[in-house]
């Protein structure tokens, strides 16, 4: 009986000391990890909006399309960056991308962050550069990648609509 109690006490004490140690290390490293994640996120946003310095995240209001996953405003008023994920009905692994929109409502650049289909898009997203929300439908789908092209165009249109609504407020 005594041996069992000793075993329990020793194991519990080791776990307790370990928990305190991990809490202390987490206290030191957590702010640095969060800061690194923020810097990495900001860097990924800067890729699609040339000249951008820093972004502030805007909250997504009610009625925002489900395809829009994040909205960021450049603090100097250069424009917006929207993170987008295609509809879940399109594929089990939705395509995700980041789109930069200038203050004038035109697409500055698009960076695909996840695309798992076998046939590649190639430079299809580049054909939307410089276009506004109403001009997206004028671009043809990419031959052989019709479903992905349609899903991409719908999500892109959602992103621009969201930016227009926020800019109008």
């Amino acid at each position: 009986m005594n041996k069992n109690i000793k075993s329990i006490v020793v194991l519990f004490s080791i776990c307790l000391v370990v928990a305190v140690l991990l809490a202390a290390v987490n206290y030191i490293t957590d702010p640095i990890i969060k800061k690194n994640a923020l810097l990495a996120e900001q860097a990924s946003l800067r890729v699609v909006l040339e000249g951008a310095e820093e972004f502030e995240e805007l909250s997504l209001g009610e009625g925002t399309p489900a395809t829009v996953t994040g909205l960021y405003k450049e603090i100097n008023g250069l424009g917006y960056v929207v993170t987008v994920s295609t509809s879940s009905s399109y594929s089990q692994s939705p395509m995700t991308f980041t789109v930069g929109v200038t203050a004038g409502g035109k697409i500055a650049d698009i960076e695909i962050t996840n695309y798992s289909e076998t046939k590649n898009f190639e430079d299809y997203p580049d054909s939307f550069k410089g276009l506004g929300g109403s001009e997206i439908n004028g671009v043809d789908v990419f031959s052989g990648v019709t479903y992905s092209s349609e899903a991409f165009k719908t999500a892109l249109s959602d992103a621009l609509t969201t930016v227009e609504e926020v800019a109008a407020k």
Binding site: L11, I14, C15, V18, L21, T29, I32, N36
Partner: peptide
């Protein structure tokens, strides 16, 4: 428990630095 603790410490330090 001891080994997992040190692995987690190394993991957190590496994630940060």
């Amino acid at each position: 428990v001891v080994i997992a603790a040190f692995v987690t410490v190394v993991e957190m330090l590496m994630h940060a630095f």
